[in-house]
Design a binder for these strands. Sequence first.
DNA 1: ATTCAATCGATATTCTATTATCGATATACC
DNA 2: GGTATATCGATAATAGAATATCGATTGAAT
Lengths: 224, 224
Amino acid sequence: MSKPVSAQALSRMPVYLHYLKALPTDKETNISAKALGLKLGFGEIQVRKDLAAVSDAGKPKLGYSVSELISDIEAFLGYDSVNDAVLVGAGKLGRALLSYEGFKANGLNIVAAFDSDEGKCGKDESGKQILPLEKLENLCRRMKIKIGIITVPAAQAQQVCELLISGGVEAVWNFAPTHLSVPQGVILKNENMAASLAVLSKRLSDKNSANKTAQVMQGKGDPK
Amino acid sequence: MSKPVSAQALSRMPVYLHYLKALPTDKETNISAKALGLKLGFGEIQVRKDLAAVSDAGKPKLGYSVSELISDIEAFLGYDSVNDAVLVGAGKLGRALLSYEGFKANGLNIVAAFDSDEGKCGKDESGKQILPLEKLENLCRRMKIKIGIITVPAAQAQQVCELLISGGVEAVWNFAPTHLSVPQGVILKNENMAASLAVLSKRLSDKNSANKTAQVMQGKGDPK
DNA sequence: ATTCAATCGATATTCTATTATCGATATACC
DNA sequence: GGTATATCGATAATAGAATATCGATTGAAT
Ligand SMILES: NC(=O)c1ccc[n+]([C@@H]2O[C@H](COP(=O)([O-])OP(=O)(O)OC[C@H]3O[C@@H](n4cnc5c(N)ncnc54)[C@H](O)[C@@H]3O)[C@@H](O)[C@H]2O)c1
Ligand SMILES: NC(=O)c1ccc[n+]([C@@H]2O[C@H](COP(=O)([O-])OP(=O)(O)OC[C@H]3O[C@@H](n4cnc5c(N)ncnc54)[C@H](O)[C@@H]3O)[C@@H](O)[C@H]2O)c1
């Protein structure tokens, strides 16, 4: 177990995990790579390879034990122990993330939010604290917070990032559409919605312009 | 121009675009691949390759003409003509997206939202309409909407997706943490926050367990 | 006009990820 | 118990992406 895993295989792990956890417990206790791939839109070989890297719950003829697979993936991702995080920027996106229950399933617990606007401070709808920015550094240190989530406007993101790091944060999840520079050793993950949109938009325009020219050349041949 | 572009190069295009557009217009009118890469955290060769695929605004010794580059990237991404979209699920995340001004810069215009909860219908803070679900299909057809954004709970996502498609939508941007199946020809892009989190969380736990063992073996050698 | 330095773009190489092949293994059926 | 079949896991082949190399081009300096 724990062979090298590509970044993309890693990204697929939560997809497997989410699907497996949603499976009815009374039904089959095993599932095959083929069946999983079919449901999730991956090839069966890819599924096998991905799973082989994190688990040995697979048995020939039987497939994988669902429950073993779940705990293996969780252990691999580190979701068995909860990660505490803080969020900075309690605006529209920030508050949506703050109150999102789904992160629990990914081992993430947002303990509090911070905002420079005093008017936004107090309790959130979901019952989480929104605190003034001044308290950030101290709280992070005290609670040994390792993850910071940035949902402030792009212009403020770099300074907020530095503040988090000076509070001891080691990993930053950035939703602002800007490049952040972080010192060596700090992990940075950008959530880049514009990138997704670009892919979507390009594929769409390619498809539509292809239609125009391809009207005639028909018959692309469907898979299988 | 318009040579083959990898999916990942495509994802970087909005990053270049955003940075270039934020550049002060009075300053230098040209920029080199090296300078761009430094600012955005990419290698200079990658920058050159990416840009070569969509533009010929590069001149030896001078670098790229910023303004030409902007319009070339915009044209390539199809951002010169605006894409209309609808959003389904005016919950916390949905409303954050609905009122987000930043999508304009990516050529996306969300014309309206839909929700099955009549209580949520009416005008949004940002002035956009939230309409009952029944009106979706008709409005999409009438306005020839090509893009649908899904921000409903996972359990409802598939049925909403089918509704969008029956309204003529050709591309779906899905924020629900579930796999959607779409007919051939319909474009599907999942915005998978759990995947990002998995990468972040894994890197963090790798780093921390590495620290424990590596206390001694020091000296990784920093880049250059 | 000639040379120099910067920088691009094309091609080649290396690295990474996906997909295919094939032998091994566990169950079910006879 | 022996055989057939589904399915896994390891290894090999292919495809795709990032990076390095190098000649070509441009403007500036002499
Ligand atoms: N809303 C979206 O759907 C969406 C989508 C993609 C990206 N984003 C990005 O996410 C970020 C937040 O977007 P939003 O729509 O929530 O904006 P918003 O204006 O609603 O929220 C920003 C919040 O940050 C706070 N803030 C500003 N400077 C701060 C500082 N220095 N320290 C702490 N808090 C500070 C503001 O008081 C405000 O509450 C932006 O960078 C935006 O580009 C938003
Ligand atoms: N909130 C977040 O930060 C976040 C982060 C990642 C993913 N997501 C995903 O985004 C989706 C929405 O999350 P949310 O926090 O906004 O939830 P939410 O409960 O606030 O909003 C969901 C909305 O969808 C509406 N809805 C339900 N069924 C519908 C249907 N059949 N047709 C139309 N509308 C319907 C509800 O009335 C509600 O307004 C969920 O799938 C969630 O997992 C949310």
